[in-house]
Amino acid sequence: MTTAYWLTQLLNALQYSMLLFVLSVGLTVVFGLMNFVNLAHGTFYALGAFVGWSLLRITGSFWAALVGAPLVVAAIAALLYLVMIARMQRAGHLAQVLATLGLVFVGVEVMRMIWGDFALEFSAPPALAGSVSLFGLVYPAYRLFVIALGLVALVLLWLLLERTALGAMIRAAVDNAAMASALGVRVDRLFFAMFCFGCALAALAGVVAAPIFSVYPGMGIEILIPTLIVVVVGGLGSLRGAVAGSLLVGFVDTFGQVLLPQLSGIVVYALLALTLLLRPQGLFPARA
């Protein structure tokens, strides 16, 4: 095992972490606002990948897919929210969560109907198709791009939440929704906006992941669990929690497979069980 090998694993872990971060940040903020978890979050991730695949075929441009798919998915999410989830407000959050479970089943079938059962090839843009030499190590350029994209998203989201009036409003509503509304915050509208924004980010992650994992209907069902683990381990509603959770899950999973191949896949759950037992509120909960 050489230094280059470990460096490669490190970059792999970082790349998976960044993907998880883009996926989980919307979910955790929505959770912090309304105690609502969207079980169909992974479905929007898969939908993003499929819509991106179609946009790539139509326009021939990866970048059009990268920008277009999140917009299309956000519009679909907004529609679903308005016709379904918003109308179930009085039934309680649990009912809304169960409705999103229904969406998981519906979503998989709809995607199978439109795009078929088989995994679709999704190639990285030509500019990022090759490999890069880095400290004597050869690493795929596309994966470096994923890491960079995740870092950019992280910085932009941090600026949004910490440095803008909208961000202060979101933090206040996550801290105490009732008090925020008593000051005039429209918490329901904020929640709607964050729901759509979170789904757009999930779709972005879907497009970004597509050249690495290819595109298939079950991809959303598979990614949901690690995403939820990130949210629980990191703590609900906070950006710091999403960052910490993503890095922990990404690194534990990647290095778990390398160091403990016989337990591969299980270590992440051990991490979750440990968190639930020792720190059930997660590492950095928004509401301490």
Binding site: A168, R171, D175, L183
Partner: peptide, 15 residues
């Protein structure tokens, strides 16, 4: 019900 994630100035500015 002071918002703990906001500073004093941010609490006032938001309001």
């Amino acid at each position: 019900d002071i918002f703990p994630s906001l500073t004093v100035a941010e609490n006032l500015e938001l309001a």
